[in-house]
């Protein structure tokens, strides 16, 4: 069984896991970090998005062994304690969630989007969210949240 070690939300972790363990399974079942969700398990929905070495990826389509040696950030690691990250606060303000199932993946996707493009246009926001599916909100309030988080006027 491969031995893996990685940094998750700033903490060093290591474990023996079978090679067929998905990163999302390792996070949820071994580390009990259940904020990362599985919506589809077929790479379509983005509920499982986490950051590996600073880039948003789908943890249902990544093996835990592929992240061996990497630095992983999940929704739990974005802000300490009861504090909210700017993007989380903007989601709250814009009412950008209903059931909340897609939200951890959305927030992680948006944090990466804004890192690469701090002032995205509405079109760029909608393209940037193309890997994340929400079956509740109709996306408008999520787009608003991204505009608020990036300090821009709300047009959505």
């Amino acid at each position: 069984m491969p031995k893996i070690a990685m940094t998750v939300n700033g903490k060093q972790v290591s474990a023996d896991v079978p090679a067929n363990t998905l990163l999302v399974e390792f996070l949820r079942k071994d580390l009990m970090l259940t904020g990362t969700h599985v919506g589809c398990d077929t790479s379509q929905c983005g509920a499982c998005v986490v950051h590996v070495n600073g880039h948003a990826i789908k943890s249902c389509t990544t093996l835990a062994v592929q992240a061996n040696g990497a630095s992983v950030m999940t929704i739990e690691g974005l802000a300490p304690g009861a504090d909210l990250h700017t993007v989380q606060a903007a989601f709250k303000e814009a009412h950008a969630l209903q059931c909340g199932y897609c939200t951890p993946g959305m927030v992680m996707a948006v944090v990466d989007m804004l890192k690469n493009n701090p002032k995205p246009t509405e079109t760029q926001i909608r393209h940037g969210l193309s890997g994340n599916i929400c079956r509740c909100t109709g996306y408008h309030n999520i787009v608003k949240a991204v505009q608020i988080a990036s300090g821009q006027a709300v047009t959505a």
């Binding site: 790479s43 983005g46 948003a56 789908k58 996707a109 990466d112 193309s130 890997g131």
Partner: peptide, 9 residues
């Protein structure tokens, strides 16, 4: 190609 997360992997 695909979406941002697919493009990162």
């Amino acid at each position: 190609i695909g979406d941002p997360h697919v493009r990162n992997s």
